[in-house]
Amino acid sequence: MIDVQNLRVSFGQGASLVHAVDGVSFSVREGETFGLVGESGCGKSTVLRALCSLNPDWTGTVSIAGAALAPVPDRAFFRRLQMVFQDPYGSLHPRHTVNTTLGEPLAIHNIPDRDRRIIEVLDQVGLGAAFRYRYPHQLSGGQRQRLAIARALILEPRVLLLDEPTSALDVSVQAEILNLLSDLRRARGLTCILVSHDLAVVAHMCDRLAVMMQGRIVEELDVAALSAGRTTTAYGAGLLAASRGYDKRLASSLTADEPGA
């Protein structure tokens, strides 16, 4: 479904050139959820932004649903692929009502039957038609993220990119959103890429995952191996150990490894 070969993304020029993503390859099968994990700044979000063409300066070959990704894709491309952003407080237009937010993608793609589709998708994400004429500031964080998911789904995409969809939310709301995403994924047969630094979220949602470090994939493993703690690289093992909570001995051994520490 998604095939990425040797993806490179760099920012800046000359001496300040930074290879944010440095030759990443992976593939995701149809209906599968693939996790990208790694510490902050390892390039996992940049991979997602390149896949949905928010960052046009990439090299490599990417094919999505059998078609090669063009640097400037046509409008039809976006009906196959949508994205849910990390921060629901920043990803919704503050002056657009729920109705406008959901009607916009339909208007862009000239899709008829807007009223029915909007009410339908609001029901599917558990908001209901009563929310239709509210502004984002009248919604809670969880409700906003549900709206963002509804906006991504209203075009009925086959691929959904999830950029840390729960990290900006309250712990109690995180589980709700994750369950909603699993349900929708199953009901619609979505292929997903989930970016997260929370290994528990990845273990809950994904079938397979890749560990990224400094713009490269250092390790790919399936979720069973993750749960059993069977990592093949030292970095993967370190990440796993770090996710189990703060450990004084581990922390001091990590800082001891760093040059200059």
Binding site: C52, F77, F78, R79, Q82, S91, L92, H93, H96, A148
Partner: peptide, 26 residues
């Protein structure tokens, strides 16, 4: 640079629509 403009870009909106309907109201 905000996410809601990124969101409408990956819905396939053109520059005219983004400026008139999403940036101007702000």
């Amino acid at each position: 640079a905000s996410d809601y403009i990124a969101a409408v870009r990956i819905q396939g909106a053109g520059p005219l629509r983004i400026i008139l309907r999403h940036i101007v109201p702000m």
